[in-house]
């Protein structure tokens, strides 16, 4: 591999990182918001969310990405392919994250909530000060698991023409006729990204020990 091949590879890696990063950031936050709306059990809204979550969880990423990118013009929207990619990844991961957050909320200690109420906290203060900090720690293993699924599933966005870390290896070997070196480097880079997440998880687990009363 020459310098330009390396350059292309790193560019592909960067594309994977920023598109996944944005999708994860939106997906984790949106998942929490959806979980809270579902817990509030608002009629109609609740049914719509249940439908969305089951659809998003049942649709393959490749199909979802294609559907979004190709259907957008029909609605008169000129969708940038990167935006379409982020949208596909986000719609998918949000559905899974919503379920992770919801179960953390539902399993939260009743005793601790009662202590918060007895101390005059409103439901919002209870959520923000008592529940959320602990839910973040207890949900983190599930959320990080979902993040690594997202990164590993992200090559799906190549189907709408985004040159990500996997797609770029194809382009390089089309020139060099040596497919093995770029794909090996790509594997190592994926492992590095997942490795960072696992390392984060370890830190979270250490903090979680404190929560075991």
């Amino acid at each position: 591999m020459n310098a330009s091949a390396w350059h292309m590879l790193l560019e592909g890696a960067w594309t994977t990182v920023w598109i996944s990063g944005i999708s994860i950031a939106i997906g984790v936050t949106a998942g929490l918001i959806l979980a809270l709306i579902r817990i509030a059990r608002i009629p109609v809204v609740d049914q719509v969310l249940v439908l969305y979550i089951s659809l998003a969880r049942a649709t393959p990423l490749v199909t979802l990405a294609l559907f979004i990118f190709l259907s957008a013009p029909t609605f008169g929207i000129n969708l940038d392919r990167n935006v379409a990619g982020i949208l596909a990844l986000t719609l998918n991961t949000t559905a899974f994250n919503a379920e992770i957050w919801r179960s953390a909320f539902r399993n939260f200690s009743r005793e601790q909530r009662e202590a918060a109420m007895a101390n005059g906290m409103t439901p919002w203060v209870t959520f923000r000060r008592i529940m959320l900090p602990q839910m973040m720690i207890t949900s983190l293993p599930g959320l990080i698991n979902e993040m690594s699924f997202l990164i590993k599933g992200s090559p799906a966005i190549a189907v709408i023409g985004i040159v990500d870390l996997t797609r770029v290896t194809n382009r390089i070997s089309a020139v060099t006729y040596e497919p093995l070196p770029p794909i090996l480097v790509a594997c190592v880079l994926y492992m590095a990204a997942i490795g960072c997440l696992v390392w984060l998880q370890r830190i979270a687990e250490r903090r979680a020990n404190r929560l075991a009363v």
Partner: peptide, 24 residues
């Protein structure tokens, strides 16, 4: 309403059988 209820609740203090401290 919850805010008003919280205000009245704050006029009492409660100690529980199982302590219910916040572990974080």
């Amino acid at each position: 309403p919850v805010r008003e209820l919280a205000k009245v609740r704050a006029r009492t203090g409660m100690v529980f059988q199982s302590f219910n401290l916040w572990p974080h």
